[in-house]
Structure formats: structure tokens, C-alpha cells
Simulated assay, not measured.
Amino acid sequence: MTCSCFTRRHTRRDVLGTLGLAAFSTLLAACGEKAGEAPSLAPVEIDRATSCELDGMLLADYPGPKAQIHYAGQDKPAFFCDTVELFNTLLAGEQVRAVRAVYVQDMGQADWNEPKGHWIDAKTAVYVLGSKRHGSMGPTIASFAQQADATKFAGEYGGKVLRFADIQRDMVDLSGGALHDTRM
């Protein structure tokens, strides 16, 4: 008796597809998720002691949108006191940690000077780059849930409206912010 899997001629696509699906299922299982289910990680609210992953600054002490990344295998999210820091981290060539979820604040709802809550999925957000409004590190990238809010903000404060995928590494240079922060 011959197993049918040995008598059928497998194409390269069959083999690669099976291997890819097996690797994907293994990766999801390692992250505690079942195949076919999307990760369901809720954003975590900041408090007075929440500090930035990159520089230790307290998020609550600074204006502008904040961000958080939930990495696979890490219980607590990494927080960022500025969206420029977030994008600099995500777009870094050396970024190798698996990202499960990314959140930014909806500045159409949150108070710019003391942003709390209003977390949205960073990948679906609309951004304004190059406005006159500053965040914790100087010029920042404002984040919005709604295109209309981003367009209104750009009309009032200047800047270019962009989607997540439009933001490139050369747009998120961190060299200026820390050099000009007198409160550090």
C-alpha cells in the first residue's frame, strides 16, 4: 500500500505553501494565539510614572501624541513620549522584535497639552507631518483617527497629511529633539 502523498507529484508552490503555513502556525502558537485569530491586545493607559522606552522621560510631563508598541513575548508595552520616536523605532533597520500591536493617540479627541486616552491602531491612523505643533521632542507627527480631523489640523497648523505606510525613515530623525530639550 502506497501513501497518496508520495504518489502525487508536488510542485514547488505546494511545498513552500505548506512550509510557510506551518511556520506561521508555529509562530502564532508561540505567541499564545490560535491560527486564524488576530491578536487582541488592548492599549494600556499611561500614568504619572509611565516612562519612555528610549530616554526614560515621563510621558505625562510632555504635550503631543504618545505611542505604545506591544512586542511578542513581552507582558507590558514599550511606551514612547513622541510619535517620531515610535516611527524611528519601527523603521529602524535593526528592529527585530516581533510587533503584535501599535497604538497612538487620536489628537482629534485628546487634549494636545495633556493627552490621555483615545488610543487608536497606529496602522489605521492618519498623520500630519511638519506642523507647527510640538511634542515632547520638538517637531512631531500628529496622529488622528479621522481623515477630516487630520485635514483640519493641517489647515490650522500646517503640515502634510499622510498614512502609516507613507512615513519613511528619513522623516523621523531624532537628532534634533533631544539636543533642544532643556527639561531633560
Score class of each variant (00 low, 15 high):
71 Y>N: 02
16 L>Y: 09
41 L>K: 13
111 D>I: 02
94 E>S: 14
141 I>M: 04
87 F>P: 02
66 K>R: 15
118 H>K: 06
86 L>K: 07
57 M>V: 09
160 K>S: 13
133 R>I: 00
51 S>W: 01
81 C>D: 15
50 T>D: 06
146 Q>R: 14
105 Q>V: 03
84 V>K: 15
108 G>K: 01
85 E>S: 13
49 A>S: 14
130 G>L: 07
128 V>N: 08
23 A>S: 11
58 L>K: 14
168 Q>K: 15
7 T>K: 13
68 Q>F: 07
140 T>E: 11
159 G>K: 10
102 V>M: 07
9 R>A: 12
24 F>M: 12
62 Y>D: 08
48 R>Q: 13
140 T>Y: 03
172 V>I: 10
110 A>S: 13
25 S>Q: 08
7 T>F: 08
7 T>R: 14
65 P>G: 05
184 M>F: 13
33 E>F: 13
41 L>C: 11
63 P>W: 03
161 V>A: 05
183 R>H: 12
95 Q>V: 02
122 A>R: 09
106 D>G: 04
42 A>E: 15
113 N>V: 02
24 F>H: 14
14 D>N: 13
8 R>W: 01
135 G>K: 03
1 M>Q: 06
80 F>P: 06
175 S>H: 12
143 S>F: 01
171 M>S: 07
45 E>V: 00
74 Q>W: 01
146 Q>F: 03
127 Y>V: 06
111 D>Y: 01
145 A>Q: 13
47 D>G: 14
28 L>K: 14
133 R>E: 14
4 S>V: 12
85 E>C: 14
87 F>M: 13
144 F>V: 08
134 H>I: 03
118 H>D: 11
14 D>T: 07
80 F>R: 04
137 M>L: 11
28 L>W: 06
40 S>E: 15
170 D>W: 08
65 P>T: 02
100 R>G: 03
91 L>E: 04
27 L>E: 11
26 T>L: 15
2 T>H: 09
33 E>Y: 14
138 G>F: 08
165 A>C: 00
106 D>R: 06
128 V>G: 07
44 V>P: 00
50 T>I: 05
2 T>Q: 09
151 T>P: 00
160 K>G: 00
131 S>Q: 03
24 F>I: 10
95 Q>Y: 01
137 M>C: 04
151 T>M: 06
112 W>A: 09
42 A>S: 15
87 F>G: 02
115 P>G: 06
101 A>K: 13
85 E>G: 05
126 V>P: 00
152 K>E: 13
93 G>W: 04
28 L>M: 15
113 N>C: 01
90 L>D: 02
10 H>R: 14
55 D>T: 11
4 S>Y: 10
17 G>V: 02
177 G>T: 10
53 E>V: 01
136 S>W: 01
107 M>A: 04
28 L>S: 05
47 D>H: 11
84 V>C: 04
147 Q>E: 14
155 G>F: 02
177 G>S: 12
67 A>S: 13
166 D>C: 04
120 I>S: 04
139 P>A: 12
136 S>Y: 05
35 A>G: 00
118 H>Q: 12
35 A>R: 08
107 M>C: 06
143 S>H: 01
156 E>K: 13
17 G>K: 08
26 T>A: 15
72 A>G: 03
28 L>Q: 14
161 V>I: 10
24 F>A: 15
13 R>D: 12
121 D>F: 01
53 E>Q: 14
